[in-house]
Simulated assay, not measured.
Amino acid sequence: MTRMEPIYRSPNPHKLYRNTAEGKLGGVCAGIADYLNVDSWIIRLAVVLGFFFFSPVVLVGYAVLWWILKPRPRNLYETKEEEVFWRSVATKPDQTLAGLKAKFREMDRVLGRIEGYVASKEYDLHRQFRDLERK
């Protein structure tokens, strides 16, 4: 499966998919485990226990999820850092927002220093020397 063009791609690729690569029966439990970032045996155990107590609900629910959920694309994330970022957005949005604010503050500080240098007389003097060297 090829990746979608960036303009059509969802900004957050961290969604619920069936993980057929790691799944045993349709990949529903593996997909839920992947989405929740837990081991798949935990979800499988919950489904088996749920089957003993609520078998019709679990059977119908599993079948519906198998039918509704799309298979997980192979290259869902471009890099490991992108995967970590989007998982943190889904699981810890407050911490992710705080981290982004800190990064933007740092970028603003660096850009302010650059702007101060470009607007300074020192920059103008260096530019004039560079122009003289070219002649």
Rank of each mutant, 00 (worst) to 15 (best):
Y77A: 00
L125V: 13
F129G: 02
I7T: 07
V110N: 07
L25I: 10
I114N: 12
K121P: 01
K24P: 00
E81Y: 06
A21I: 00
P73Q: 04
A119E: 04
D108Y: 13
R127F: 12
M1N: 03
N75I: 03
G61L: 03
A33R: 09
P13C: 07
V118E: 10
D108T: 15
I43Q: 01
A102N: 13
G27D: 00
E82L: 00
Y117R: 11
L45Y: 02
T96D: 09
A33K: 07
E106K: 14
L25W: 09
P11W: 02
F129P: 05
G99S: 14
T20D: 04
F52W: 03
K15Q: 12
N12I: 03
R44P: 02
N12K: 01
L65K: 08
F51A: 13
R127Q: 15
K70D: 14
F52P: 05
S40N: 12
L132A: 15
K103R: 13
A46P: 08
V89Y: 14
A98P: 04
Y62M: 03
E82G: 10
R127E: 14
E106A: 12
T79I: 11
M1Q: 03
C29Q: 07
S55A: 11
V89L: 14
L65F: 12
P56Q: 06
I32C: 04
E115V: 05
S88A: 05
G31R: 06
Y35T: 07
F104E: 13
R134S: 14
A30E: 04
I68N: 08
G61R: 08
I114Y: 12
R130H: 14
H126G: 12
D39T: 02
A33L: 03
V48M: 12
R9I: 03
F129V: 12
L125F: 13
A30N: 03
M4Y: 06
V118K: 14
I7A: 10
L36W: 05
R105L: 13
L16N: 02
E22S: 04
E81Q: 11
Y77D: 02
E22A: 09
D131L: 15
I32M: 06
G116Y: 06
A63Q: 00
I68W: 08
G50I: 07
Y35L: 11
W41Q: 01
W67G: 09
P13F: 04
R18V: 04
R72W: 06
K80Y: 01
F53Q: 05
R9H: 03
